[in-house]
Design a protein around this nucleic acid. Structure first.
Lengths: 84, 84
DNA sequence: GTAATATTTAGATATTTGTCTAAATACCTA
DNA sequence: TAGGTATTTAGACAAATATCTAAATATTAC
């Protein structure tokens, strides 16, 4: 859970998740949605991957990222436990 | 929401919330549950307060902290929105 | 008022983090 | 194989963060 909270503690990363909610996107597509450089986005995607909030697979020269809701379910359980 | 994610991005603060789930506690009670100093715990409590994850009121020389689940509800909504 | 207890504030420091530029890697096309 | 596009890796740097010690504030008890 540590990595999940860390990953969510950044506005850009939360927006990336929101983009991926709509549909899968390549790293390049995601980068174009922000004002920061591609290496920075790549780094954010890495942190999201480590937290398993996103998955990715290579398709030719492109890397396609997808939202992984499994971890979001775990997060929900964590919150519910806190509430009793 | 920014402050909420920030506040949750720390193991000690998440454990503080878990303690407060059981019952309200004074700052001193909370500090005793951890190996870090009282000023550090005080700082963590400040961050949790800023995120409105806890509320506090003074009772004599003691400051009593309580869990505030309202923000947790907002967090749940955020997650659900992400999942559709 | 003085002393004791509870908590916070102030200031310092080492670590982590988000960002950048430059370079490297991977894949495709001709 | 050479050149172009997509993405990541490496290294640097400023800002944010968690922690500490020392001091300040607030309350209670005598």
């Amino acid at each position: 859970m540590n990595k999940v909270f860390k990953a969510l503690n950044d506005q850009t990363r939360r927006e990336i998740l929101n983009l991926l909610k709509e549909k899968d996107l390549t790293a390049g597509d995601i980068a174009e949605a922000f004002q920061i450089t591609k290496p920075s986005i790549s780094h954010h995607l890495d942190i999201l991957s480590q937290a398993e909030l996103v998955t990715s697979h290579k398709q030719g020269q492109f890397v396609i990222y997808s939202l992984n809701t499994t971890v979001l379910d775990d997060l929900m359980k964590w919150i519910i436990t806190l509430k009793d």
